[in-house]
């Protein structure tokens, strides 16, 4: 088990390093930060001093090696905008995103399991057709549009919910609702498909020959087997949410890592961009390991070899 984890961690270190190289050079293509950080009428001397102070006057490869050297001391650089550790800024925003993502994916998953199973129990029924319609709409609706219409209807016209920000429980409703939509739609389709397959499988036939009650067949035999592909898809969707729900966080002014990343890119706050990428990459790595381990728990045929 630990051998397996070690191997996976090693692979991840390599990909995270590759990612950092890419991000480091790409951010520097966005331009000189001094034009954004100094007043428009700043003198060339002042700009040069700013560049020297932050090391932007060095050749790119020297800057990169300095960055790598700092990384070894767990120094992730300073935020230009906030004058404090960039990692601190990123880690402050991340829990906000995580809370949102976890709630959204669990609510979407639980709801999809119920709706998808009921739809699969009687394919072609009225409920099945209704569920298919709703899930298709959910999976294909553009989230920025839903978010804006949501604000217009529930916040502006009806004045039921706050438009943006954090604070009360009411602030959570719209961001989670919009974030849930796509995962819910996709997961209903996956649950329905795998459940229909599972319900016509040979082991369900065996259960029927044993006289097992229909309800128990659906939940104990069919659903348990259907969970595996559902978790694959749900894991994928969770990854994209942890990555920062950029659009939703921006529209609702949610202080998460997606919004932070976008702001940092626009402001050319290089160290913060790099730190947010590092944080989300590590989160995705941990999430993937968790999904693999969950697989091993759910499917006895999968056991990870240590050696």
């Amino acid at each position: 088990m630990f051998g397996y984890l070690g191997k996976r961690a090693l692979h991840s270190v390599v990909s995270v390093l590759g990612l950092l190289v890419l991000v480091f050079f790409l951010t520097r293509l966005t331009g000189d930060p001094s034009y954004l950080f100094l007043p428009l009428d700043a003198t060339p001397q002042a700009r040069e001093a700013f560049s020297t102070l932050h090391g932007f006057d060095q050749p790119l490869h020297i800057q990169f090696f300095n960055y790598l050297g700092d990384l070894l001391h767990l120094d992730f650089g300073e935020s230009l905008r906030q004058n404090r550790s960039a990692m601190e800024v990123a880690l402050e925003a991340f829990p906000q995103t995580l809370k949102l993502a976890v709630l959204a994916i669990f609510l979407a998953g639980a709801l999809a399991l119920v709706v998808g199973s009921l739809a699969a129990a009687k394919p072609g029924s009225l409920f099945d057709r209704f569920a298919s319609l709703v899930s298709l709409a959910g999976a294909s609706a553009p989230d920025f549009w839903i978010a804006i219409v949501g604000i217009l209807v529930f916040a502006v016209s009806l004045d039921l919910l706050p438009t943006s920000g954090t604070g009360s429980a009411a602030h959570w409703i719209m961001p989670i609702g919009v974030l849930m939509l796509r995962p819910f739609g996709l997961l209903v389709q996956v649950v329905r498909g795998t459940m229909i397959g599972a319900l016509s499988s040979p082991y369900v036939k065996t259960a029927r020959a044993k006289g097992v009650r229909r309800q128990k067949i659906i939940f104990s035999h069919a659903l348990r087997n259907s969970l595996l592909p559902v978790i694959t898809v749900a894991g994928d969707l969770a990854t994209s949410l942890v990555n920062g729900a950029v659009v939703v966080e921006s529209v609702f002014g949610w202080p998460g890592i997606g919004k932070l990343m976008i702001d940092a890119i626009i402001q050319r706050d290089f160290a913060v961009v790099q730190s947010t990428v590092l944080v989300t990459a590590c989160a995705i790595f941990i999430l993937n390991i968790a999904i693999d381990l969950l697989y091993a728990v759910l499917d006895p045929r999968i056991r990870y070899q240590t050696s």
């Binding site: 082991y203 020959a209 035999h221 348990r224 499917d299 006895p300």
Partner: peptide
Amino acid sequence: INGRKIAMIFQDPLAHLNPVH
């Protein structure tokens, strides 16, 4: 009656046994 009075044995036991139980 199924299982108590009449029981069935199938051809392909790997497919007819639930893999996760």
